[in-house]
Each structure stands twice: as C-alpha cells, then as structure tokens.
C-alpha cells in the first residue's frame, strides 16, 4: 500500500469530483477511473486516470477537466497519466454510481457474483435474453419500471460501453451499461 499524504487525499477528492463528460450524472470517482494522485514537489501533481474502453474518446475531456479543477485549486503543474493496468472493470463503479445511472434511465452493469456469501435467487419468469459474452444469471432490469422482462436489441448502443435493450413490460427502450 502506497502512503497518501493529506494533500494527495484532498486532491484525489477534487479530481474525483469532476463529472463524467458523457454521463454527467456520475463523477469520475463514482465511475472508478481516477486511480491515484501523486504530489511531486512544489506545485506539481500527477494524476493516474484509467480509460473505461481503450478507445474511449472521453478520456481527453476528462484529462482537461481534471487539469482545470486542480489548477483552480492552486496546483501549478498537472500531468494526467493514462494507465491501462489493472484493466478497468464495471465492478469499479460505486454503488452510488449505479444508483445514479438507474435514476438517469440507464440500467447499471451487474456486479460479478462473488463465490462466497449468499446467492440471491430470483423467483418468477425472466425472459431476459443473453446479454453478451459472459452470461449472468441475474436479469437486466428496466430502469423505468423495474421489470426483469427485457430483451436485447443491439450489443452496441450510443457508446461502446452500452447495449440497447427494450422492456417487455413497459415497452420502453433503454441503454444498459454492459459488464466489462
């Protein structure tokens, strides 16, 4: 574990408070993409940012926003470094982030079930079709009406990180932040 100074913790909090440029309901901290902040001597700070997808075009906007916020806070020199490993996963999205996504009308990614602990058992019919390469047992629920009966329309939606689905109960189409 690398020790973090109070200043670094404060700057990490600031960098993490920047809204996601694509999904402004989420902060970068809730999305889980700001990995660390290192203070490198007087007024110089390095921020480690990880992309959701390798080609995510929002990374540049995120970097610019982080630089701006930290400069406004008096940091003279900000460098945002892109780190790939360990690879970002949708499990890095916080619970609060998931709640906000759902409120925004986007079905949040399902969390990979850990092998230990109780496994929730869904009762009733679930017509949820296959969602992607790894099959999850729990259904993708409609963010509008909460129904578990939803179907996949397209594996890729408005952005690479989302799939397009439709609710069979309320008939509304919706985006699903797919598991990665």
């Amino acid at each position: 574990m690398v020790t973090t100074t109070p200043l670094e913790a404060e700057l990490l909090e600031l960098a993490g408070s920047v809204p996601d440029p694509e999904l402004p309901v989420l902060t970068l901290r809730e999305l889980g993409v700001v990995r660390a902040v290192h203070a490198r001597g007087a007024g110089t700070v390095e921020v480690e940012l990880t992309p959701t997808y390798t080609g995510c075009p929002a990374v540049e906007a995120m970097s610019t926003d982080i630089e701006r916020v930290l400069r406004e806070h008096g940091v003279r020199e900000v460098t945002v470094r892109r780190v790939l490993a360990p690879a970002w996963s949708t499990d890095d999205i916080t619970d609060e982030g998931r709640r906000k996504l759902r409120e925004f009308g986007i079905a949040p990614p399902r969390v990979r079930t850990s092998p230990s602990g109780p496994v929730p058992v869904e009762l009733g019919t679930t017509r949820t079709q296959q969602t992607g390469p790894d099959d999850h047992t729990d259904p993708v629920r409609c963010p509008h009406c909460g129904s578990a009966e939803t179907e996949l329309l397209s594996r890729f939606s408005s952005t690479a990180c989302k799939a397009l689905r439709r609710c069979l109960a309320c008939r509304e189409p919706f985006d699903h932040f797919k598991e990665l």
Partner: peptide
C-alpha cells in the same frame, strides 16, 4: 503487451460475440 492486452481482451470478447 500485457497491460493493453488485459484491457483489450475484454473488448474483443464483445466483438467476437457480435
């Protein structure tokens, strides 16, 4: 290439599935 591959392999799973 391990860091990039670790990231990209998850993306290519969706490409292959498609």
């Amino acid at each position: 290439f391990a860091p990039l591959a670790g990231k990209a392999v998850k993306e290519t799973a969706y490409h292959r599935d498609h």
